[in-house]
Design a protein around this nucleic acid. Structure first.
Lengths: 226, 226
DNA sequence: TATGTAAATGACCCAAAAGTCATTTACATA
DNA sequence: TATGTAAATGACTTTTGGGTCATTTACATA
Protein backbone atom coordinates (compact mmCIF):
# COMPACT_ATOMS: atom_id res chain seq x y z
CA UNK A 1 0.00 0.00 0.00
CA UNK A 2 2.91 2.38 0.51
CA UNK A 3 3.31 3.87 -2.95
CA UNK A 4 4.94 7.00 -1.52
CA UNK A 5 7.93 8.53 -3.13
CA UNK A 6 10.52 9.72 -0.77
CA UNK A 7 8.95 13.12 -0.91
CA UNK A 8 8.95 14.80 2.51
CA UNK A 9 5.62 15.08 4.27
CA UNK A 10 6.42 18.66 5.02
CA UNK A 11 9.22 21.19 4.70
CA UNK A 12 11.09 23.38 7.10
CA UNK A 13 10.37 26.94 6.07
CA UNK A 14 10.95 28.96 9.17
CA UNK A 15 11.05 32.41 7.60
CA UNK A 16 8.48 31.92 4.86
CA UNK A 17 5.79 30.84 7.32
CA UNK A 18 4.86 34.09 9.05
CA UNK A 19 4.00 35.90 5.84
CA UNK A 20 2.04 32.94 4.52
CA UNK A 21 0.13 32.57 7.75
CA UNK A 22 -0.70 36.26 7.84
CA UNK A 23 -1.87 36.12 4.25
CA UNK A 24 -4.10 33.15 4.98
CA UNK A 25 -5.38 34.74 8.16
CA UNK A 26 -6.20 37.97 6.35
CA UNK A 27 -8.48 36.00 4.05
CA UNK A 28 -10.21 34.09 6.80
CA UNK A 29 -10.58 37.03 9.17
CA UNK A 30 -11.94 39.42 6.55
CA UNK A 31 -14.35 36.74 5.38
CA UNK A 32 -15.66 35.61 8.74
CA UNK A 33 -14.74 38.20 11.32
CA UNK A 34 -12.49 37.57 14.30
CA UNK A 35 -14.76 35.40 16.42
CA UNK A 36 -16.10 33.18 13.65
CA UNK A 37 -12.72 32.62 12.08
CA UNK A 38 -11.30 29.19 12.88
CA UNK A 39 -7.58 28.76 13.30
CA UNK A 40 -7.98 25.31 11.81
CA UNK A 41 -9.04 26.95 8.56
CA UNK A 42 -6.26 29.50 8.67
CA UNK A 43 -3.82 26.64 9.04
CA UNK A 44 -5.37 24.72 6.16
CA UNK A 45 -5.18 27.78 3.92
CA UNK A 46 -1.55 28.28 4.88
CA UNK A 47 -0.81 24.64 4.15
CA UNK A 48 0.24 23.76 7.67
CA UNK A 49 -1.14 22.07 10.77
CA UNK A 50 -2.89 24.00 13.50
CA UNK A 51 -0.14 23.35 15.98
CA UNK A 52 2.37 25.01 13.69
CA UNK A 53 0.54 28.29 14.01
CA UNK A 54 1.57 28.43 17.63
CA UNK A 55 5.25 28.33 16.78
CA UNK A 56 4.76 31.76 15.17
CA UNK A 57 1.87 33.38 17.03
CA UNK A 58 1.09 32.87 20.71
CA UNK A 59 -2.66 33.42 20.56
CA UNK A 60 -5.46 34.05 18.11
CA UNK A 61 -5.45 37.66 19.22
CA UNK A 62 -1.76 38.04 18.45
CA UNK A 63 -2.33 36.69 14.97
CA UNK A 64 -5.20 39.09 14.45
CA UNK A 65 -3.13 42.07 15.50
CA UNK A 66 -0.32 40.98 13.23
CA UNK A 67 -2.73 40.73 10.31
CA UNK A 68 -4.12 44.22 10.77
CA UNK A 69 -0.75 45.84 11.41
CA UNK A 70 0.79 44.13 8.41
CA UNK A 71 -2.04 45.27 6.14
CA UNK A 72 -1.78 48.83 7.40
CA UNK A 73 1.95 48.89 6.90
CA UNK A 74 1.40 47.84 3.31
CA UNK A 75 -0.89 50.74 2.60
CA UNK A 76 1.21 53.14 4.59
CA UNK A 77 4.03 53.50 2.10
CA UNK A 78 1.53 53.99 -0.68
CA UNK A 79 0.16 56.95 1.20
CA UNK A 80 3.66 58.28 1.76
CA UNK A 81 4.46 58.06 -1.93
CA UNK A 82 1.23 59.79 -2.84
CA UNK A 83 2.02 62.52 -0.35
CA UNK A 84 5.33 63.21 -2.08
CA UNK A 85 3.68 63.55 -5.47
CA UNK A 86 1.27 66.20 -4.21
CA UNK A 87 2.01 69.28 -6.22
CA UNK A 88 0.01 72.16 -7.55
CA UNK A 89 -3.28 73.68 -6.61
CA UNK A 90 -6.26 71.93 -5.06
CA UNK A 91 -8.05 72.46 -8.36
CA UNK A 92 -5.88 69.84 -10.03
CA UNK A 93 -5.12 67.86 -6.91
CA UNK A 94 -8.57 66.84 -5.74
CA UNK A 95 -9.74 65.06 -8.90
CA UNK A 96 -6.52 63.09 -9.07
CA UNK A 97 -6.66 62.22 -5.39
CA UNK A 98 -10.26 61.05 -5.46
CA UNK A 99 -9.79 59.09 -8.66
CA UNK A 100 -6.77 57.37 -7.21
CA UNK A 101 -8.64 56.52 -4.03
CA UNK A 102 -11.54 55.15 -6.06
CA UNK A 103 -9.16 52.98 -8.07
CA UNK A 104 -7.42 51.73 -4.99
CA UNK A 105 -10.67 50.89 -3.28
CA UNK A 106 -11.86 48.82 -6.20
CA UNK A 107 -9.00 46.38 -6.36
CA UNK A 108 -7.53 46.00 -2.96
CA UNK A 109 -8.58 44.38 0.24
CA UNK A 110 -8.57 47.68 2.03
CA UNK A 111 -12.37 47.97 2.17
CA UNK A 112 -12.63 44.48 3.60
CA UNK A 113 -10.01 45.39 6.18
CA UNK A 114 -11.83 48.58 7.02
CA UNK A 115 -15.01 46.67 7.65
CA UNK A 116 -13.12 44.20 9.81
CA UNK A 117 -11.50 46.90 11.92
CA UNK A 118 -14.79 48.76 12.30
CA UNK A 119 -16.55 45.59 13.34
CA UNK A 120 -13.97 44.61 15.91
CA UNK A 121 -13.24 48.11 17.18
CA UNK A 122 -15.14 47.49 20.41
CA UNK A 123 -13.17 44.37 21.23
CA UNK A 124 -9.86 45.72 19.89
CA UNK A 125 -9.87 49.47 20.48
CA UNK A 126 -6.09 49.51 20.20
CA UNK A 127 -6.34 48.34 16.59
CA UNK A 128 -8.86 51.05 15.84
CA UNK A 129 -6.39 53.50 17.28
CA UNK A 130 -3.52 52.17 15.14
CA UNK A 131 -5.74 52.32 12.07
CA UNK A 132 -6.73 55.86 12.97
CA UNK A 133 -3.24 57.16 13.66
CA UNK A 134 -1.60 55.58 10.65
CA UNK A 135 -4.25 55.82 7.98
CA UNK A 136 -7.15 58.11 8.78
CA UNK A 137 -5.40 60.86 10.71
CA UNK A 138 -2.47 60.70 8.30
CA UNK A 139 -4.57 61.37 5.24
CA UNK A 140 -6.78 63.88 6.99
CA UNK A 141 -3.84 65.85 8.34
CA UNK A 142 -2.27 65.98 4.92
CA UNK A 143 -5.44 67.18 3.27
CA UNK A 144 -6.20 69.65 6.02
CA UNK A 145 -2.85 71.36 5.78
CA UNK A 146 -3.10 71.55 1.99
CA UNK A 147 -6.46 73.23 2.37
CA UNK A 148 -5.17 75.65 4.99
CA UNK A 149 -2.32 76.62 2.68
CA UNK A 150 -4.73 77.13 -0.18
CA UNK A 151 -6.82 79.33 2.07
CA UNK A 152 -3.75 81.37 2.92
CA UNK A 153 -3.14 81.82 -0.81
CA UNK A 154 -6.71 82.97 -1.22
CA UNK A 155 -7.77 79.99 -3.30
CA UNK A 156 -10.23 78.49 -0.88
CA UNK A 157 -13.13 80.12 0.92
CA UNK A 158 -12.97 80.65 4.67
CA UNK A 159 -14.06 77.75 6.83
CA UNK A 160 -12.80 74.88 8.94
CA UNK A 161 -10.12 73.04 6.94
CA UNK A 162 -10.85 69.71 8.64
CA UNK A 163 -14.53 70.00 7.73
CA UNK A 164 -13.50 70.75 4.16
CA UNK A 165 -11.32 67.65 4.16
CA UNK A 166 -14.31 65.55 5.18
CA UNK A 167 -16.41 67.24 2.51
CA UNK A 168 -13.84 66.03 0.00
CA UNK A 169 -13.30 62.43 1.03
CA UNK A 170 -16.56 61.64 2.84
CA UNK A 171 -18.63 60.62 -0.16
CA UNK A 172 -15.98 58.22 -1.41
CA UNK A 173 -15.49 56.67 1.99
CA UNK A 174 -19.21 56.22 2.30
CA UNK A 175 -19.52 54.79 -1.20
CA UNK A 176 -16.72 52.35 -0.50
CA UNK A 177 -18.35 51.18 2.70
CA UNK A 178 -21.75 50.82 1.08
CA UNK A 179 -20.44 48.69 -1.73
CA UNK A 180 -18.43 46.62 0.71
CA UNK A 181 -21.30 46.04 3.12
CA UNK A 182 -24.26 45.91 0.77
CA UNK A 183 -22.47 44.45 -2.21
CA UNK A 184 -22.40 45.55 -5.80
CA UNK A 185 -25.84 44.02 -6.30
CA UNK A 186 -27.48 46.83 -4.38
CA UNK A 187 -29.76 49.22 -6.23
CA UNK A 188 -27.23 51.96 -5.66
CA UNK A 189 -24.38 50.11 -7.24
CA UNK A 190 -22.74 53.27 -8.42
CA UNK A 191 -19.27 53.19 -9.85
CA UNK A 192 -16.82 54.72 -7.45
CA UNK A 193 -14.91 56.13 -10.41
CA UNK A 194 -17.96 58.05 -11.60
CA UNK A 195 -18.61 59.29 -8.09
CA UNK A 196 -15.01 60.42 -7.75
CA UNK A 197 -15.08 62.50 -10.93
CA UNK A 198 -18.42 64.15 -10.32
CA UNK A 199 -17.86 64.79 -6.63
CA UNK A 200 -14.46 66.33 -7.28
CA UNK A 201 -16.12 68.83 -9.58
CA UNK A 202 -18.91 69.53 -7.14
CA UNK A 203 -16.87 69.97 -4.00
CA UNK A 204 -14.25 72.08 -5.72
CA UNK A 205 -16.88 74.43 -7.09
CA UNK A 206 -18.18 74.70 -3.56
CA UNK A 207 -14.83 75.34 -1.91
CA UNK A 208 -12.87 77.47 -4.32
CA UNK A 209 -13.12 81.21 -4.59
CA UNK A 210 -14.29 82.27 -8.06
CA UNK A 211 -10.95 82.57 -9.83
CA UNK A 212 -10.06 79.15 -11.27
CA UNK A 213 -13.07 78.17 -13.36
CA UNK A 214 -11.51 75.67 -15.75
CA UNK A 215 -13.72 72.70 -16.41
CA UNK A 216 -11.77 69.49 -16.99
CA UNK A 217 -11.57 68.31 -20.59
CA UNK A 218 -10.46 64.76 -20.04
CA UNK A 219 -12.18 62.63 -17.45
CA UNK A 220 -10.71 59.16 -17.80
CA UNK A 221 -7.50 59.49 -15.85
CA UNK A 222 -8.10 56.91 -13.15
CA UNK A 223 -5.18 54.64 -12.59
CA UNK A 224 -5.68 50.99 -11.85
CA UNK A 225 -3.36 49.68 -9.21
CA UNK A 226 -2.61 45.99 -8.93
CA UNK B 1 -32.30 33.08 58.79
CA UNK B 2 -35.34 33.41 56.58
CA UNK B 3 -36.17 37.06 56.95
CA UNK B 4 -38.01 37.09 53.62
CA UNK B 5 -41.24 38.91 53.23
CA UNK B 6 -43.81 37.12 51.21
CA UNK B 7 -42.62 39.04 48.17
CA UNK B 8 -42.59 36.84 45.09
CA UNK B 9 -39.20 35.75 43.82
CA UNK B 10 -40.31 36.71 40.34
CA UNK B 11 -43.34 37.91 38.41
CA UNK B 12 -45.27 36.64 35.44
CA UNK B 13 -44.91 39.29 32.77
CA UNK B 14 -45.45 37.46 29.53
CA UNK B 15 -45.97 40.46 27.26
CA UNK B 16 -43.57 42.89 28.87
CA UNK B 17 -40.65 40.47 28.54
CA UNK B 18 -39.88 40.59 24.80
CA UNK B 19 -39.40 44.35 24.69
CA UNK B 20 -37.30 44.32 27.84
CA UNK B 21 -35.15 41.51 26.54
CA UNK B 22 -34.64 43.25 23.21
CA UNK B 23 -33.70 46.46 24.98
CA UNK B 24 -31.17 44.64 27.15
CA UNK B 25 -29.82 42.74 24.18
CA UNK B 26 -29.40 45.93 22.17
CA UNK B 27 -27.12 47.25 24.89
CA UNK B 28 -25.05 44.13 25.17
CA UNK B 29 -24.78 43.48 21.45
CA UNK B 30 -23.82 47.03 20.55
CA UNK B 31 -21.29 47.04 23.34
CA UNK B 32 -19.65 43.69 22.67
CA UNK B 33 -20.62 42.55 19.21
CA UNK B 34 -22.58 39.42 18.44
CA UNK B 35 -19.99 36.79 19.25
CA UNK B 36 -18.66 38.30 22.45
CA UNK B 37 -22.09 39.05 23.85
CA UNK B 38 -23.12 36.59 26.55
CA UNK B 39 -26.76 35.63 26.89
CA UNK B 40 -26.17 35.36 30.62
CA UNK B 41 -25.45 39.07 30.67
CA UNK B 42 -28.44 39.90 28.49
CA UNK B 43 -30.60 37.97 30.94
CA UNK B 44 -29.07 39.75 33.93
CA UNK B 45 -29.70 43.14 32.32
CA UNK B 46 -33.27 42.17 31.57
CA UNK B 47 -33.72 41.01 35.16
CA UNK B 48 -34.47 37.41 34.29
CA UNK B 49 -32.75 34.03 34.25
CA UNK B 50 -31.00 32.72 31.19
CA UNK B 51 -33.51 29.96 30.70
CA UNK B 52 -36.30 32.49 30.44
CA UNK B 53 -34.71 33.95 27.32
CA UNK B 54 -35.46 30.73 25.51
CA UNK B 55 -39.18 31.04 26.15
CA UNK B 56 -39.13 34.13 23.90
CA UNK B 57 -36.27 33.56 21.47
CA UNK B 58 -35.20 30.18 20.14
CA UNK B 59 -31.53 30.96 19.57
CA UNK B 60 -28.99 33.72 20.05
CA UNK B 61 -29.24 34.41 16.35
CA UNK B 62 -32.99 34.91 16.55
CA UNK B 63 -32.55 37.37 19.37
CA UNK B 64 -29.94 39.25 17.39
CA UNK B 65 -32.20 39.51 14.36
CA UNK B 66 -35.05 40.72 16.53
CA UNK B 67 -32.83 43.40 18.04
CA UNK B 68 -31.72 44.79 14.69
CA UNK B 69 -35.16 44.67 13.12
CA UNK B 70 -36.71 46.35 16.12
CA UNK B 71 -34.17 49.14 16.09
CA UNK B 72 -34.63 49.70 12.37
CA UNK B 73 -38.40 49.83 12.73
CA UNK B 74 -37.94 52.53 15.36
CA UNK B 75 -35.96 54.75 13.04
CA UNK B 76 -38.14 53.95 10.09
CA UNK B 77 -41.10 56.05 11.10
CA UNK B 78 -38.80 58.95 11.91
CA UNK B 79 -37.62 58.84 8.33
CA UNK B 80 -41.18 58.68 7.07
CA UNK B 81 -42.15 61.72 9.08
CA UNK B 82 -39.15 63.65 7.82
CA UNK B 83 -40.03 62.69 4.27
CA UNK B 84 -43.47 64.24 4.67
CA UNK B 85 -42.04 67.51 5.91
CA UNK B 86 -39.80 67.88 2.85
CA UNK B 87 -40.94 71.04 1.12
CA UNK B 88 -39.28 73.74 -0.86
CA UNK B 89 -36.06 73.94 -2.82
CA UNK B 90 -32.86 72.04 -2.19
CA UNK B 91 -31.31 75.35 -1.19
CA UNK B 92 -33.32 75.38 2.03
CA UNK B 93 -33.73 71.64 2.34
CA UNK B 94 -30.13 70.45 2.50
CA UNK B 95 -29.00 72.50 5.50
CA UNK B 96 -32.03 71.42 7.48
CA UNK B 97 -31.63 67.79 6.47
CA UNK B 98 -27.95 67.63 7.35
CA UNK B 99 -28.43 69.46 10.61
CA UNK B 100 -31.20 67.11 11.60
CA UNK B 101 -29.10 64.09 10.72
CA UNK B 102 -26.21 65.49 12.75
CA UNK B 103 -28.49 66.01 15.71
CA UNK B 104 -29.96 62.56 15.46
CA UNK B 105 -26.55 60.94 15.21
CA UNK B 106 -25.34 62.63 18.36
CA UNK B 107 -28.01 61.38 20.70
CA UNK B 108 -29.26 58.07 19.50
CA UNK B 109 -27.93 54.57 19.37
CA UNK B 110 -28.10 54.58 15.60
CA UNK B 111 -24.34 54.94 15.11
CA UNK B 112 -23.70 52.05 17.46
CA UNK B 113 -26.23 49.99 15.58
CA UNK B 114 -24.66 50.93 12.28
CA UNK B 115 -21.28 49.76 13.50
CA UNK B 116 -22.83 46.54 14.72
CA UNK B 117 -24.56 45.80 11.42
CA UNK B 118 -21.44 46.66 9.44
CA UNK B 119 -19.33 44.43 11.63
CA UNK B 120 -21.66 41.46 11.41
CA UNK B 121 -22.63 41.92 7.78
CA UNK B 122 -20.51 38.98 6.68
CA UNK B 123 -22.12 36.61 9.11
CA UNK B 124 -25.61 38.11 8.74
CA UNK B 125 -25.91 39.34 5.18
CA UNK B 126 -29.68 39.25 5.48
CA UNK B 127 -29.54 41.89 8.21
CA UNK B 128 -27.32 44.07 6.04
CA UNK B 129 -29.94 43.73 3.31
CA UNK B 130 -32.78 44.70 5.67
CA UNK B 131 -30.77 47.67 6.88
CA UNK B 132 -30.03 48.64 3.31
CA UNK B 133 -33.59 48.33 2.02
CA UNK B 134 -35.26 50.07 4.94
CA UNK B 135 -32.77 52.78 5.85
CA UNK B 136 -30.05 53.43 3.30
CA UNK B 137 -31.94 52.87 0.05
CA UNK B 138 -34.94 54.66 1.50
CA UNK B 139 -33.09 57.84 2.27
CA UNK B 140 -31.01 57.69 -0.88
CA UNK B 141 -34.04 57.19 -3.11
CA UNK B 142 -35.79 60.10 -1.51
CA UNK B 143 -32.82 62.41 -1.93
CA UNK B 144 -32.15 61.23 -5.45
CA UNK B 145 -35.65 61.95 -6.66
CA UNK B 146 -35.60 65.37 -5.04
CA UNK B 147 -32.39 66.13 -6.87
CA UNK B 148 -33.74 64.87 -10.16
CA UNK B 149 -36.78 67.10 -9.78
CA UNK B 150 -34.59 70.07 -8.99
CA UNK B 151 -32.58 69.30 -12.11
CA UNK B 152 -35.78 69.23 -14.15
CA UNK B 153 -36.61 72.67 -12.76
CA UNK B 154 -33.18 73.87 -13.76
CA UNK B 155 -31.99 74.41 -10.20
CA UNK B 156 -29.26 71.80 -10.15
CA UNK B 157 -26.43 71.24 -12.59
CA UNK B 158 -26.45 68.18 -14.85
CA UNK B 159 -25.00 65.00 -13.36
CA UNK B 160 -25.88 61.71 -11.77
CA UNK B 161 -28.48 62.37 -9.06
CA UNK B 162 -27.38 59.36 -7.00
CA UNK B 163 -23.81 60.63 -7.02
CA UNK B 164 -25.08 64.03 -5.91
CA UNK B 165 -26.98 62.37 -3.09
CA UNK B 166 -23.76 60.76 -1.88
CA UNK B 167 -21.97 64.09 -2.20
CA UNK B 168 -24.54 65.50 0.18
CA UNK B 169 -24.71 62.85 2.90
CA UNK B 170 -21.30 61.17 2.54
CA UNK B 171 -19.31 63.52 4.77
CA UNK B 172 -21.81 63.24 7.61
CA UNK B 173 -21.98 59.47 7.36
CA UNK B 174 -18.21 59.33 7.42
CA UNK B 175 -17.99 61.74 10.30
CA UNK B 176 -20.51 59.72 12.26
CA UNK B 177 -18.61 56.51 11.70
CA UNK B 178 -15.29 58.08 12.61
CA UNK B 179 -16.55 59.43 15.89
CA UNK B 180 -18.23 56.11 16.64
CA UNK B 181 -15.18 53.99 15.84
CA UNK B 182 -12.35 56.25 16.93
CA UNK B 183 -14.16 58.01 19.73
CA UNK B 184 -14.51 61.67 20.47
CA UNK B 185 -10.97 61.69 21.83
CA UNK B 186 -9.52 61.51 18.34
CA UNK B 187 -7.55 64.47 17.05
CA UNK B 188 -10.29 65.05 14.49
CA UNK B 189 -13.04 65.31 17.04
CA UNK B 190 -15.01 67.68 14.92
CA UNK B 191 -18.51 68.58 15.85
CA UNK B 192 -20.97 66.96 13.51
CA UNK B 193 -23.14 70.05 13.78
CA UNK B 194 -20.35 72.28 12.49
CA UNK B 195 -19.62 69.86 9.71
CA UNK B 196 -23.29 69.77 8.74
CA UNK B 197 -23.58 73.53 8.42
CA UNK B 198 -20.37 74.08 6.51
CA UNK B 199 -20.78 71.09 4.23
CA UNK B 200 -24.34 72.09 3.36
CA UNK B 201 -23.03 75.43 2.16
CA UNK B 202 -20.19 73.86 0.24
CA UNK B 203 -22.10 71.12 -1.52
CA UNK B 204 -24.97 73.40 -2.42
CA UNK B 205 -22.65 75.94 -3.98
CA UNK B 206 -21.18 73.08 -5.97
CA UNK B 207 -24.48 71.64 -7.14
CA UNK B 208 -26.73 74.58 -7.77
CA UNK B 209 -26.81 76.58 -10.95
CA UNK B 210 -25.94 80.22 -10.38
CA UNK B 211 -29.39 81.60 -9.66
CA UNK B 212 -29.99 81.24 -5.97
CA UNK B 213 -26.96 82.91 -4.43
CA UNK B 214 -28.33 83.80 -1.04
CA UNK B 215 -25.70 83.38 1.62
CA UNK B 216 -27.20 82.44 4.94
CA UNK B 217 -27.37 85.30 7.42
CA UNK B 218 -27.89 83.20 10.49
CA UNK B 219 -25.73 80.18 10.98
CA UNK B 220 -26.86 78.77 14.28
CA UNK B 221 -29.96 76.93 13.16
CA UNK B 222 -29.06 73.46 14.26
CA UNK B 223 -31.83 71.73 16.14
CA UNK B 224 -31.12 69.43 19.00
CA UNK B 225 -33.34 66.40 19.04
CA UNK B 226 -34.00 64.50 22.24
C1' DT C 1 26.36 8.58 6.42
C1' DA C 2 25.40 9.44 11.28
C1' DT C 3 23.44 12.66 14.48
C1' DG C 4 21.64 16.70 17.04
C1' DT C 5 18.16 20.17 16.89
C1' DA C 6 14.27 22.35 16.03
C1' DA C 7 10.33 22.65 12.68
C1' DA C 8 6.13 20.46 12.15
C1' DT C 9 2.49 17.48 13.43
C1' DG C 10 -2.21 16.10 15.18
C1' DA C 11 -4.40 13.77 18.89
C1' DC C 12 -5.74 15.45 22.97
C1' DC C 13 -7.33 18.63 26.81
C1' DC C 14 -10.32 21.95 28.68
C1' DA C 15 -12.76 26.38 29.34
C1' DA C 16 -16.58 28.88 27.99
C1' DA C 17 -20.90 29.62 26.64
C1' DA C 18 -25.10 28.08 24.01
C1' DG C 19 -28.94 25.47 24.80
C1' DT C 20 -32.08 21.91 27.75
C1' DC C 21 -35.35 20.41 31.07
C1' DA C 22 -37.13 18.73 35.51
C1' DT C 23 -38.66 21.41 39.05
C1' DT C 24 -40.53 25.43 41.33
C1' DT C 25 -43.82 29.01 41.83
C1' DA C 26 -46.96 32.97 40.48
C1' DC C 27 -51.50 33.71 39.75
C1' DA C 28 -56.01 33.19 37.10
C1' DT C 29 -60.02 30.67 37.83
C1' DA C 30 -63.68 28.37 40.19
C1' DT D 1 -59.10 28.68 49.46
C1' DA D 2 -57.95 24.94 46.39
C1' DT D 3 -56.10 23.91 41.91
C1' DG D 4 -54.50 23.76 37.03
C1' DT D 5 -51.32 25.77 33.97
C1' DA D 6 -47.76 28.01 32.19
C1' DA D 7 -44.08 31.46 33.35
C1' DA D 8 -39.75 31.29 35.35
C1' DT D 9 -35.79 29.12 37.16
C1' DG D 10 -30.92 27.39 37.37
C1' DA D 11 -28.31 23.28 37.51
C1' DC D 12 -27.03 20.45 34.00
C1' DT D 13 -25.51 18.76 29.24
C1' DT D 14 -23.36 19.55 24.88
C1' DT D 15 -20.68 21.58 21.59
C1' DT D 16 -17.14 24.08 19.76
C1' DG D 17 -12.82 25.65 19.00
C1' DG D 18 -8.58 27.69 21.29
C1' DG D 19 -4.50 26.04 23.06
C1' DT D 20 -0.93 22.06 24.51
C1' DC D 21 2.63 18.70 24.05
C1' DA D 22 4.72 14.14 23.27
C1' DT D 23 6.18 12.46 19.11
C1' DT D 24 7.76 12.51 14.36
C1' DT D 25 10.71 14.04 10.80
C1' DA D 26 13.35 17.37 7.78
C1' DC D 27 17.75 18.81 7.22
C1' DA D 28 22.21 21.28 8.63
C1' DT D 29 26.44 19.83 10.17
C1' DA D 30 30.41 17.02 10.81
Amino acid sequence: MELRDNQPKWNRRKDARPAEIIEAALHVFTEQGFASAKLEEVARRAGIAKGTLYRYFDTKEDLFRAVVQHAIAGNLQTIEQAAQAFQGSLRELVPVLLTQIAGRMSNSRLPALARLVIGESRVFPDLARIWHDNVVAHVLRLLTSLIAEAQARGEVRPGDPTAYALSIVGPLVTGMLFSEVFGVAGPHAMSLATLAVQHAETVLRGMLLAASESSPKEEGNLQEIT
